[in-house]
Measured scan of single mutants.
Amino acid sequence: QVATSTVRILGMTCQSCVKSIEDRISNLKGIISMKVSLEQGSATVKYVPSVVCLQQVCHQIGDMGFEASIAE
């Protein structure tokens, strides 16, 4: 089973930030795809909930120095 959710990301300033986040999160087990939008300050994450949760994704992004939260 696959889920798609949006994560809000604060602190991104350039495409390099976007690429860094996409590269790191895409390597997590259970992540199918991730598309980060600098303009919208968010990311669309396609993932397998039984393998990885959005809290883990937000935590990983937080470790990179950005502020991440699950969009309502």
Rank of each mutant, 00 (worst) to 15 (best):
E22N: 04
T44Y: 14
Q15C: 05
T4W: 09
S42R: 10
S69H: 13
S26M: 12
S5G: 15
L10K: 14
V7D: 05
I31W: 02
E67V: 14
S20A: 10
D63W: 09
S50K: 07
M64W: 04
I9A: 00
V18C: 04
R24K: 14
P49E: 07
Q15R: 08
G62H: 13
Y47T: 02
I9D: 04
E22G: 03
S37R: 08
V57M: 03
A71V: 14
D63T: 13
V7F: 10
V2H: 10
Q60P: 02
S37G: 03
V45Y: 00
F66M: 03
I70R: 04
L38E: 01
E67M: 10
V45N: 01
L38H: 01
I31A: 00
G41P: 01
V2Q: 07
T6P: 04
S16T: 14
T13N: 06
V57W: 04
A71H: 07
R24N: 08
R8I: 12
C58V: 15
V57N: 03
V51W: 06
K35G: 04
S42Q: 11
T6A: 05
E39G: 07
R8Y: 12
T4P: 02
H59N: 14
Q60W: 12
E72Q: 10
I21T: 01
I70E: 07
V52A: 04
C58G: 08
C58K: 13
A43N: 01
L10G: 11
V45T: 01
V36E: 01
L28Q: 05
L28W: 05
T44L: 13
R24A: 10
V36A: 04
E22A: 06
V52M: 06
Q55L: 11
V18R: 05
M34T: 05
H59V: 14
R8H: 10
I70M: 08
P49S: 07
G62P: 03
T13E: 09
K35C: 07
L38Q: 02
V48R: 09
V18T: 06
S50C: 05
S16I: 11
I21E: 02
K46H: 14
I21R: 02
H59A: 13
I61K: 05
A3V: 15
G65R: 01
Q56M: 15
M64N: 02
Q1K: 12
S37H: 12
C58L: 15
I31L: 03
E72T: 14
V48N: 15
G11D: 04
A43D: 03
R8L: 11
Y47A: 03
A71P: 13
V45K: 01
I25R: 01
L28N: 02
S69D: 06
Q56S: 09
I70F: 10
Q15T: 08
I31S: 02
H59Q: 15
S5I: 09
L54K: 01
